Computed example of a mutant assay.
Amino acid sequence: MPRVNFEALPDAARLWVFSAATPVMGAAAQSLLERVDRELDGWRAHGVPLVCARDWRDDRFLAIGVNEAATDASGCSIDAMFSALRAHEGVIGTTLVGNGAVYWRDASGTVQSVTRPVFRALAADGAVSSDTPVFDTAITTAIAWRTAFEKPARDSWHARLLPPAR
């Protein structure tokens, strides 16, 4: 039983965040999560099952975590997960791996995504600010997913994309 509930992962569990370029809802989300669960159920490193879990947020963000205190993920096992997700992108109709977008929550609460240059332009125009909630898809631990994934732009690497404070 290598797959556990996400809440069962220790705070120090290693984490990868995959972000959908467009929202994944309904049957597409169900298909994605079923595929991920099947992959996690059989996920191994050098033949040893990985203690792992996944979480899904805002129809956009998939977190996959591994309790490396139990068993380390290997390069090959990590590559296999990335490949499985890439292979499923056509089924769900959007990218999950390596889209490089910037994600934020607009005033209505909807998650938006654009390229870094577009986000910088939105900041220059005042459409986003240091108070805008942003998502840090570069986090690498379960505790960061639980406590610091969404935060004001001023408290994230996104601050580099904002105009200098006056």
Rank of each mutant, 00 (worst) to 15 (best):
A153Y: 06
L33D: 06
V118S: 08
L40R: 00
T115K: 02
I64H: 01
P133D: 10
F6A: 07
L162M: 01
A80C: 07
S74H: 08
D155H: 09
V118H: 01
F61P: 02
R146H: 10
V24M: 08
T71F: 06
H158E: 09
P133L: 06
D79T: 06
R38E: 15
Q112W: 03
M81N: 04
E89K: 02
R160P: 00
R116G: 11
D136W: 12
M81L: 15
D58R: 12
A45I: 10
D136K: 12
H88W: 07
S83H: 13
L40W: 01
W104A: 04
V134S: 08
L96F: 03
G98I: 11
P133T: 01
G126N: 11
L40A: 00
D79N: 07
E68W: 11
D106M: 01
D136T: 15
F119R: 12
G47D: 03
S77Y: 06
P164T: 13
I92F: 10
A8L: 08
D55A: 15
D79V: 09
G47T: 06
S129R: 11
V51S: 00
V91H: 15
V114S: 07
P133F: 01
L32C: 01
A21I: 04
L32V: 04
L161Y: 08
R3N: 07
P152N: 05
F82M: 15
F61K: 04
A53F: 02
P152G: 02
S108Y: 01
M1F: 06
M25F: 13
M81S: 01
W157K: 02
